[in-house]
Amino acid sequence: MAKTYDYLFKLLLIGDSGVGKTSILFRFSEDAFNISFISTIGIDFKIRTIDLDGKKVKLQIWDTAGQERFRTITTAYYRGSMGIMLVYDVTNEKSFENIKNWIRNIEENASADVEKMILGNKCDLDAKRQVSKEQGEKLAIEYQIKFVETSAKDSLNVEYAFYTLARDIKAKMEKKQEASNPPGNRSGVHTLNDTDRKRQPTSWLARCSVL
């Protein structure tokens, strides 16, 4: 039986309870949003196969519970993951401050070369905002991690975030695999849905390539 994908990437979503991890994943896998989502108990996962520079990449995305009581369970999933999304809620300053703790958690439990990305979610709620975009960018630069503000509700930058993380993992993998071969074509296009492409902040793309 032929494989239906070229690569399998295991990704992980972490962050405080209620920041919108499940909503982001639901947006990405189902392209939907549900205001009254159930809290995650333990762990959960979703799968979506994307096309990346002509390769079929199957993303197996693990969604974790934010509450600390479940942490012994959730940290068990750090080790096998190749990419981790750190999510905070722009309307909740504490969830932003906790990103540092989550990063430390990664350092203690995940493999050293895991790809990371910080997401500032719920950026549609501008009136309730407690964390500015600049604060997010500053933190990201400090830790040398890519950053983007997202909205699971408005489908803003969710696709972009997963594609970016997947592309980084692929690049790292190919670099390792084909150390002797000439570097692969990294400038290839990726599929963004219309909302994403339209609202993509251009300044972002610029910053991304710098980081």
């Binding site: 309870s17 209620g18 509450q67 009581r69 942490r71 300053e93 504490k94 906790n98």
Partner: peptide, 29 residues
């Protein structure tokens, strides 16, 4: 919620149990 999350230390333990108990009567997770 912000305060509540802030009561945990880095490993998610609650450091000031008594204080937390007091706070809990006023809303939460």
């Amino acid at each position: 919620t912000e305060k509540w999350e802030g009561l945990h230390d880095t490993e998610g333990r609650i450091t000031e149990v008594e204080g937390v108990k007091q706070l809990i009567f006023r809303g939460s997770l």
